[in-house]
Structure formats: C-alpha cells, structure tokens
C-alpha cells in the first residue's frame, strides 16, 4: 500500500496577522512557515504505520500545491521520514483549485491522509473535495487509524460520540488531533537524509477558482475586561445575570 499525505504550508500559529496592501491576503514578510498542524499529525501516523507494517506499506509520499516558497516545509516532511515529496507548482488560492490539482496525482495511492482544516483559512474543504473528485470513500474527524488484514480500522468522532469502522481501500481519511500522540520532530540524521530524497515539481493543470477573497479585516476589538474582587463572587453572578444577561 502507498500512502499519500497532503501537506498544507501555513504561518506559525503564533504569527501576528498583517494584511497585504489590498487586504485580500496576508503580508508574508517575516512569517515563519510550518506544516499545517493536522498534517503533521497525519504524517506522524503514516510513519508509525509504515514502521509497524513494513511489509504492507511500501512508501509514504507527501504532496503540496504551492510555489517554490513551500519547499522548506516539504523538506521538513521528508526529514520527518516521508520517502518522496511532490510539489504542484501553483499558488494555492482556493480549495477547489487545490483539490483539482491534487486529483491529478492522488489516484494511485490506496490511502490518502488530509487534515481536518488548514490553520490559515480554516477551510475544511480540500480533503473532501479530493475524495469526491476521485469518487472514493472518505471518513472525517478520524482520531485513530490502523491496519487490520487488508482493511483499515478507523476511529472517528461523530457529533455526540465515537465510532469504530472497518473500511476498505482506496480510502481518503481526514484526520484530527488524537490520530498520533506526539508529532515527530526531524532529527539531525533525518535532515541530512532529506537533502537527497526526491522532491518532484509538477506543472499545474488548467483549473479555475470557485471562490475569491474580497477583503480581510481584523475582528472588532473587545472592551476592557471588567474585574470583580475575588471575595465578591456574588457580584460576578449578578453581572452575568443582569448586565450580560447570559445566566
């Protein structure tokens, strides 16, 4: 089985957001880029599976749709242990565009892992779109993934509980936290090896956008926090009841 892990390239989660001149994107000056947190979990789990089932899993490949600026992120994924990286050379402006690009390379992988969302535009879109484009089954909110004979044992969160499923391949699993305990950090050896691993660059196919960002703005600023003394908890309850009207 070959596993494909989709890798989003996003600003570090502590980044202060500044907008570009026309306010349709962010000012990328000084931004630290990271592997989208959920994709990092997915990659970690893929590596764990490959180690546990060396006979059954032949390779773990990572793919990203992005400009050459995303290559350090892909190199990091290689350093974590992926065998090969593929970059589709186009700016990732919209989930539909990204999914149609990925569809050209993803079909041959029996198992595709995507994250539940990218921490930039919080789309929760690419994984599901790709599954539909490939006409294959998908499971979402996956918190556990294992091999069982020639099938996949999947744990997923549903709205109000959890489920264990037995799924056949090909499958696209959309993962969330819980899928791996702790993410892997590249070791020195991994970083050295990553330099010699293949990073293939592919030209994009003709596609279009389904959405476009008209404007970004900052959320409204909050009024100052009203402080209540520690020994006056009753007053807090009164304020919540009478002023905020939420009790």
């Amino acid at each position: 089985m070959k596993i494909l892990v989709l890798i989003g390239n996003v600003p570090d989660t502590t980044t202060k957001i500044k907008f570009n001149a026309d306010q349709t994107g962010i000012d990328t000056a000084g931004v630290q880029w990271i592997i989208n947190p959920w994709d990092e979990f997915a990659l970690t789990r893929a590596m764990e599976l490959k180690e546990a089932y060396a006979g059954a899993i032949s390779s773990v490949v990572v793919a990203n749709v992005g400009s050459s600026q995303t290559e350090p992120t892909l190199r990091k994924a290689l350093a974590v242990g992926a065998d090969k990286a593929i970059r589709i050379d186009a700016e990732a402006k919209d989930a539909f565009f990204v999914a149609t690009q990925l569809a050209q390379i993803a079909g041959e992988y029996e198992l595709i892992l995507a994250g539940i969302e990218a921490s930039d535009y919080n789309g929760s879109a690419v994984g599901g779109m790709l599954a539909e484009l490939l006409d294959r089954s998908s499971v979402s909110a996956v918190t556990g993934l294992d091999l069982k004979d020639d099938k996949l044992l999947v744990t997923r969160e549903i709205d109000g509980g959890n489920q264990h499923l037995l799924c056949t391949t090909p499958l696209l699993a959309i993962v969330q936290k819980g899928i791996a305990k702790e993410v892997r950090i590249p070791a020195m050896r991994g970083i050295m090896m990553a330099r010699t691993k293949p990073l293939e660059v592919i030209a994009p196919v003709e596609s279009s956008y389904a959405t476009s960002i008209q404007k970004l703005e900052l959320p409204p600023t909050k009024a100052a926090c009203k402080m209540v003394a520690e020994d006056n908890v009753k007053e807090l309850v009164r304020l919540l009841k009478e002023e905020a009207k939420v009790l």
Partner: peptide, 11 residues
C-alpha cells in the same frame, strides 16, 4: 480565518 485572528469576506 486564521483561527479567529481575522475575518474574511469571500465571494
């Protein structure tokens, strides 16, 4: 978007 750090108007 950006996990609550900004609001996007999308067409």
């Amino acid at each position: 978007v950006f996990t609550g750090k900004a609001i996007a108007h999308i067409k």
